[in-house]
């Protein structure tokens, strides 16, 4: 049964598969290519179980800066950054709601005291810090750099307004990081990376790479694009 012919034919199938795989990868389009040798340092780490998200409430996406006024206060309660390198604990998930929570009405003419803005200091010792929806919104209004780690075709379907695409699973990711490195020379400015929220780890993987390139203030917007859409953040 398992004679010389069997092994010769089996080896032929395997060799043919390797040849076809190499050829197809060479001729593949940029977003379909893979580097032959992967670079995924956490490939053997089992992630902590993430709680299933609560059913999302639909909110029409905003297209201008008035979007921030639609953030319920509930989102801002969990605005504590979480040091994570690598994180195994699940940070508290802010409850999302479409209805504004309790708001104190001030008499007319009394100026609303501005909320103190959070500062995002560089953190050279850890690869990234996880941020909340409110932090992401604040940083977006402060014109921080936003980077989308999802695949090119998903990015093209919709992304946070003004964000750049750096699909961490595509073969040219290192070239894109090199180009970014040449362009963004201030390595201490906040850089927000995001993907699809939930179990998505692409943003963490990209944050690791950016930290490796020397960026010291990478912030992972863990809830990602779905949460951004739910809270009415600007998309394009």
């Amino acid at each position: 049964m398992f004679d010389r012919r069997f092994f010769a034919e089996g080896a032929a199938i395997v060799v043919l598969a390797v040849l076809c795989a190499s050829t197809s990868n060479i001729v593949a389009a940029r977003e379909r290519k893979l580097a032959p040798v992967g670079d995924y340092p956490r490939a053997l780490e089992v992630p902590a179980k993430v709680a299933d998200p609560a059913p999302a409430a639909a909110v029409a996406p905003a297209t201008d800066e008035s979007a921030i006024s639609t953030i319920p206060e509930a989102l801002e309660t969990a605005a504590t950054t979480t040091a994570a390198a690598p994180s195994t604990a699940t940070p508290p998930q802010p409850a999302l709601s479409t209805t504004p929570t309790t708001q104190v009405k001030l008499p007319a003419g009394v100026p609303v005291p501005p909320k103190p803005k959070k500062l995002f200091a560089p953190h050279p010792d850890v690869a990234y810090v996880e941020i909340t929806n409110a932090d992401a919104m604040q940083l977006w209004h402060e014109k921080a750099i936003f980077i989308d780690a999802r695949r090119t075709d998903v990015f093209n379907q919709g992304h946070i307004a003004g964000s750049r695409s750096m699909p961490v699973w595509e073969a040219d990711i290192n070239d894109r990081i090199r180009a970014f490195f040449d362009e963004v020379t201030n390595q201490q400015q906040p850089i927000v990376v995001y993907c699809s929220g939930g179990n998505c780890e692409d943003s963490h993987m990209l944050a690791d790479k950016l930290w490796g390139a020397g960026y010291e203030n990478v912030l992972v917007y863990k809830d990602g694009f779905p949460a951004w859409q739910r809270m009415g953040g600007a998309v394009e």
Binding site: V18, S22, L34, P36, V37, G38, Y40, P41, L44
Partner: peptide
């Protein structure tokens, strides 16, 4: 292991 993922995904 991370280094082998892409090769397996291709072949």
């Amino acid at each position: 292991p991370g280094f082998a993922i892409n090769a397996i995904a291709l072949v």
